[in-house]
Simulated scan of single mutants.
Amino acid sequence: MSNGTAERGTNGVQSVDRALGILERLARAGELGVTELAQEMGVHKSTAFRLVTTLEDHGLVEQTEERGKYRLGMGILRLAGATTARLDLVQEARPVCRQLATATGETVNIAVLSDASALYVEQVAGSSALQSHNWVGQHIPLHATSNGKVLLSGLPDDELASLLEDLPSYTELTITARDLLTAELEKVRDEGYAVAVDELEVGLTAAAAPIRSAHGDVIASMSVSGSTYRMSGDALDEVIAHLREAAAEVSRRLGWVGLH
């Protein structure tokens, strides 16, 4: 690494550290001016002003009616709310996931939309899932998985369009044609669940159902996955029945009272 690159990296980390310092100071004091922030942090006033302006652009701080004073902005609540919602989701889903894993003997996962992929946030292995891979914290493609299809099915058309532009193939059964995937998502909306058989990995079958917020929005997906050999025919139908009931239970725990 060149000295110039190292210096930029160091300066970048220092800026992040200082920006976090501003947020912490505002959290303690309530309101502070740029001069006060500069003095407390031991930096030039122009540096403090630049950092505060950047934070303001992102809604993390805002000016009070008294010009020159800053306080934490509504963006902080948005970030905190997203974290709280995810924690609530996992907390409410965990016991239901355990029951579903016991009932089906297969691996149960909870996934949420994360940029252009699905992010696993919870997993419970069933009795048939010997040495199951831990997917928590990992991202998977949307179009080639049952979880992904469910998450896509809950998006408005304008958001959905940008996510259907690049559909790489993982197996011979992966849906890569945009019109076919659009039809598949319509089927997911109508039936209330999605299935992916050998689409991400040959020998792997998964079914997923939506988890809804109190407002009815699809905020997560619950899936049951296992060997294609085991999860086929009547066995798959039975898994889907258990799955839909479990996903609806988590939705009810989150405040949803509607019927699919």
Rank of each mutant, 00 (worst) to 15 (best):
L23E: 01
T145I: 07
V136N: 06
K45A: 05
G59V: 02
A101G: 05
L167N: 11
E159D: 05
A246W: 07
A144R: 08
L164S: 02
W256Q: 04
V257R: 15
F49N: 14
S232Q: 12
L79E: 06
D190S: 11
G81T: 07
E191L: 14
A161P: 03
A248Y: 11
E201R: 14
D157P: 03
A207F: 06
Q91A: 15
D234E: 08
G192R: 13
R244T: 12
V188P: 04
V218P: 07
G137W: 09
H133F: 12
V16W: 00
H260N: 07
G154W: 15
L130T: 10
D158T: 08
A48I: 01
G126Q: 04
V188C: 09
G258E: 04
R8V: 03
G33C: 05
E201I: 11
E7L: 14
G126A: 02
E201P: 07
R86D: 12
R28C: 03
L180H: 15
Q14S: 10
Q91I: 15
L200K: 12
K69M: 13
I219P: 06
N3A: 14
R18M: 00
V202N: 11
L142C: 02
V202R: 12
Q14W: 07
S221R: 11
T205R: 03
V188L: 14
R25D: 00
A29Q: 07
L173M: 15
